[in-house]
Simulated scan of single mutants.
Amino acid sequence: MSDQGFSLLTSIGPDTSPRKHLEMIQQEIKKYKATCEQLENDQTELKVARDNLLEITKEFKMRSATVQQRRQEEEQLKASQVNLHKERLVSVQAEHAELCRESEALQNELDRMEEENQELRLQTQVSTAVPEKKMVFTGVTAVEGCSSSFDVKPRILYPIEGGTALITFEEEDVAQKVLEIKFHKIKLGECYITVEARPVQLLVPSDIEVETHVCDKRILISDLPKIGMEDQLLDKLEIYFQKKRNGGGDVDMTEMLPDSGNVVVTFVEDTIAKGLTSKEYHDIKMFDKTYRVKVTPFLNGEIKHLKARTSVSKKTVQLVGIPDILDEENLQDNLEIHFQKPSSGGGEVDAFVYIPLGKKAVGIFEEDTSSE
């Protein structure tokens, strides 16, 4: 299509015939008609192109809106996930802090248990059945009101009422014979009395549980030599354990345990005993000679469980129903003489005690070692 304007009027020369001029006009019309058709075609193509562009624009806008919506959804999802992760992070941090506290508490508990375990290693837990012991009255009495006690060496206190006696025979068979006769008629001068023989029933431990703990201020010294007087031995030990070069310190008291012959040393401070017991044996110079003694922790005990049973003394018999008709000494002599006679069903008497009416006493029963 030409950029120049057009006109049906053309310049005609003077020599141009009308016919020729008409033909030229027809050619021009034909030419411009073709140009017009070309313009219409171009316009149609432009319209199609415009419609295509509008369709593409519409589709692009729709796709852009979809992408925008998807992007917003993704951003919302991302924000939601970020918030969720933040919440999880806060929860994890709180859980971590709680676990740290629990770990610290467990570590403290573990340290406490370890300390307790170390302490328990020094302690002795005693739980054992007490073996059968033969008990016999030795003729020794104690002041009324003393409570019963039980230790490694059995010692049972038995109350004796007034008007009764305890008699211990050397042989079990004699005691059983006296019990079988039961009622015994005894001559006292010009008259007779009748006494009843009864078995002596003792309440003895059958099972005992003792909880012990180490005393921080005391030590137990054993394997001591049998030399010198007790006071001298205690003085020598006190002098040795007061010296810091020996691991000792200020001594509060030293005492001898009469039942075992061991010595207990009590210190003023509670840090001395542990150091001394870490070294089990100590060489102590006493009376121009060096002796090796054993130093161990001193245990304080508390009975946690005690089960008792009834046991009958095999050699001891209780006589009841004794009237107060003679003085105490004469009556005891007559009773003892009567039960020493085989003709009266008696035998050799190992111990005898008579408690007159109006008085009371406590008989001490210990383990019978005569048959061992």
Rank of each mutant, 00 (worst) to 15 (best):
I160M: 15
S147E: 15
P159W: 00
S147W: 08
E170L: 07
F169S: 02
I160L: 14
I156Y: 13
A105W: 00
G163W: 01
V136Y: 03
I156F: 07
E119C: 12
L122W: 05
E109M: 13
F150S: 04
K134S: 03
T168G: 07
M135C: 12
T138F: 03
E116W: 08
F137T: 14
K134I: 02
T164K: 07
T138R: 01
D151R: 04
E115I: 09
M135N: 02
A129Y: 08
V126W: 10
E109A: 15
E116C: 05
I160T: 06
Q107S: 10
A129L: 07
R155P: 08
P159E: 02
M135P: 12
E132P: 03
S148L: 02
P154R: 01
P159T: 06
T164I: 02
L120C: 12
I160Y: 03
F169E: 01
Q118D: 14
N108I: 11
E144S: 06
D151W: 02
S103V: 10
F169M: 02
N117M: 08
I167A: 03
E116V: 08
T128E: 02
S147F: 09
V130Q: 10
V126P: 02
V152P: 00
F169G: 00
E116S: 08
V130K: 12
V143R: 09
E144Q: 00
V152Q: 01
L106C: 09
T138L: 09
S103M: 10
E161Y: 13
Q125S: 11
F137N: 14
G139T: 07
E114R: 15
T138K: 07
L122N: 13
E132N: 08
R121W: 05
M135T: 09
T138A: 07
E114W: 08
V143C: 02
I156R: 07
Y158G: 00
G163F: 05
G139P: 13
R155Q: 13
R112L: 05
V126I: 14
L106G: 00
E115P: 04
E161P: 06
S148I: 04
L157A: 12
Q125M: 08
S127V: 07
E102K: 15
P154E: 00
T141F: 06
L122M: 10
A142G: 15
T124D: 01
Q118C: 10
A129D: 09
V130F: 09
G139K: 03
T128P: 00
K153H: 10
S147D: 12
G139Y: 01
S127Y: 04
F169Q: 01
E104W: 02
L157Y: 11
E161G: 11
F150G: 03
N117W: 05
I167M: 06
A165N: 05
D151A: 06
E114G: 10
G162I: 10
L166A: 10
V143L: 02
Q123D: 06
G163P: 13
S127N: 14
Q123F: 04
S103A: 13
N117D: 05
V152I: 02
S103L: 14
K134L: 01
D151V: 03
F150V: 06
D111K: 14
Q118I: 10
V126R: 11
K153T: 13
E114D: 13
